[in-house]
Amino acid sequence: MLVDINTCFGKSPKQRVDWSPETLLSLLEDKAVDRALTYSLRGVLYDFVTGNDETWEVCDRYERLIPVATIDPRRHFGCLEEVERCADRGFRVFRFFPDEQGWTINSKPFLNLCEAIAEHGAVMLLPAGATGHQTLIGEIIAPFGFNIVIIGAGYGVNAETYAVAAEYDNVFAETHMFDTPGTIEGLVWVAGPHKVIFGSNSPDRYFGAAYAMVQHAELSDEDRAAILGGNALKYLHLEGS
């Protein structure tokens, strides 16, 4: 089972891209990805309510896709209600974009959202961000109790990924920016194979770059299979979805 927890679809105001759901699906088919978590960029860049609707509709249409909801806490009005609406609808994963939207994870509006999300036992995807950010995730967000996957930690902050994933039982790490030799093996040694979850950031990035890192990592077959799918199913509560 190959699961990619980091994909999206939609448009970009900065460049002309062909990131339609159909393009994404074609890529996933080509790469033999069984399931992919995805979200609409509309929800990140413009309006999370209609963006989440679009995500749900697309994922409803295509069985391979699993919906990820997003909320921009800067709006205040309707944010907590959106948690309820999405949870009631069946979203099990929420993803946030503080860097793109210009807010911080220690801000009260976001912490209020965390509290609401914790009540639903959902999973949260958060960016690794700059130095210190993952530590904040561990210290401030992990105590809410839901599982958190850190997305896009590059080599400059991988030491922090190791430390946080090792210390907090409910913090995991996604792989698409793991590009140094031994990063994946190192995280497996330090925090355990269950803490590493494959993601590609398709269709923005080359799927093959992230995938080759897992394929070439010196891992047991069992650990590799867990990273490429088993961990996502288990820790993002995707079984049966």
């Binding site: 080599y155 590009d179 140094t180 030799p181 031994g182 990063t183 080359y206 799927f207 093959g208 770059a209 992230a210 995938y211 080759a212 890192m213 394929q215 070439h216």
Partner: peptide, 14 residues
């Protein structure tokens, strides 16, 4: 050995 060749080769192979 800052970046793993696998990452860049994966890009070209894709």
């Amino acid at each position: 050995d800052l970046i793993d060749p696998a990452f860049i080769i994966g890009m070209f192979e894709d």
